[in-house]
Amino acid sequence: MKVYLGIDVGSVTTKFALLDERDELVDTLYLRTQGKPIAMVQQGLAEIARRLPPGMEIAGVGTTGSARYLAGVIVGADLVKNEITSHAVAALHILPQVQTVVEIGGQDSKVIIIRQGVVTDFGMNTVCAAGTGSFLDHQALRLGISIEEFGPRALESRTPVRIAGRCTVFAESDMVHKQQMGHRTEDILYGLCQALVRNYLNNVALGKELLPPVVFQGGVAFNQGIVRALEESLETQVVVPPHHEVMGAIGVALLVHEEMSATGEPSRFQGFQVSQIQYHTSSFECKACPNLCEIAQLSLNGKVLARWGGRCDLWERTSTS
């Protein structure tokens, strides 16, 4: 049977989703990127191969996420798609009547506005990561609790404290102050949830009309505290899909299925042995012009597979020839 693989390599986590011919989910995988996107893609592929039911053949691979081009080269992707489109497609697949997609990941957050099944607008956080998973991770660490405990503990709050969520630095000093005043940890945790949601709504979703049904996806949707804070702010129920953390991967798998059916071409998938190969990455400074770009390159057995990072396409061109 033919299956389609979607890989979403984000800054914090790497996600895999395997769909069959009827777009039913066969398998998913959720790993921490740990700053090693190549190793994680390889590890994930090995795991997927081990669990792959017999008789299944990969008929298409798509990559998305901030390391989508890098991952695309390694696996031999048939489609490389940005994460906004991927998330929108996945949300529409799960809930065709969706009008708003809230996606909060490790280092970025997005809002996607959908009307009559078509994306009409979107927003993404700019330079600040204050409203994302990293922020929660960091604060949980400070409070000495694990990120898994965060949500359930936050739900126990009765009188949440108000914390400035505009900036991680301010939030942190605010939070320490509240701790010193003797507020309960639960109340501080829920205060943080509200701060994150406020920050998200005031920055990423500013000026957008967030109509129900709202689908909440991304790793942060694991946190029930955030889900509740979001529901309170939006005054509507929020749908958290069962596989919310791998929606980007599901989306790109759906897209690659669509693409392969349209073109009818064989997949460029390099095979599962990719996970055994020793890739080499390096970088150098290009001196062709005063811009001195940092060029990163990916090579295999001394042969350069791809190069990135230039402000012009000087190196990208040489790598494909």
């Binding site: 940005n82 906004i84 489109t85 009409t120 993404m124 700019t126």
Partner: peptide, 16 residues
Amino acid sequence: GLVTRLEAFLDMIQRR
């Protein structure tokens, strides 16, 4: 960030 936004914007228009 710019590339992602640009790609998403073009996709949005095309799918629409």
